[in-house]
Amino acid sequence: MMFTLSSEQTDFAAVLHDFLRAGKTDLASLGVDEVTDPVDLVVVFEEVGHHAVAGPLIESLAVVPALMGGVAAGAAAGATHSVAFPPLVPHAVEADRYFLIDGDTLHEATPTAELESVDPSRRLVDLSPGPIVATDVPAARAFDLGVLTCSAQLLGLGRAMLELTTTHAKTRAQFGKPIGQFQAVKHHLANVLIGLELARPLVFGAAVTMNSRDVSAAKVATSDAAWQAARIALQVHGAIGYTAEHELGRFLLQTRALRTAWGSPSMHRARVLEAL
């Protein structure tokens, strides 16, 4: 047993962090599109969440590659993919090319209608199935990879909001002292840290076992921990956090959308219970 990241993995996370912090977006230039190991995918997606990167990354980097296996997707380099798994994932995030799963059959798909997510940065589409691309695809594993990477992204989002809020609490003063000196603020942030700290090992544990029960448990815990982080971040920031001018909103809205994406917490709790 060795339940910690290797130094290569922590180095890779640091490289991704610097890359995304610098505003760069071409993740393929770091070889991210060649990552297939679930633990490595978690490392990638925690940083994707940490920087609130938008777009169909879960689909393009984790789910569609798992569905296509060795088969080339046939898309131009850099093109984005998206996929729906009705009824659990009824819509797809806007992308260059769409797929749809029906049982173990993978279809091409075309977008029919646009839908509004609670997060305006997530453009959703309804899909209509087209020709069959492949049969007997590993749909269950691909779905679980979607859930897992979504959990990792939520973890990164939560961490980012905790960092933002801690910084704010140290610098914003009211009543003649930094608000981080008030015990109510301290306890709010301690609760956020506890939630994230205990959700994290569930995500890596799920990446190691890749069984549905563990993947669902990770999604439940990260959905709750990240959303708690968002609510408390907003509360501690106050009105400034409620503005579109402040970066918090981007994190908060994405967290709320991902909380119910790739299966709601309720559906995942049901899946955990079934497996016990």
Binding site: F3, L202, F204, D214, L273, L276
Partner: peptide, 24 residues
């Protein structure tokens, strides 16, 4: 149901967290 499942998930989280603490 959710409280039961969350109890199981919480115990599992603490278990895995402890495994992570073995190294450090």
């Amino acid at each position: 149901r959710d409280r039961v499942v969350d109890a199981w998930i919480g115990a599992q989280a603490y278990r895995l967290h402890t495994f992570g603490a073995l190294a450090a």
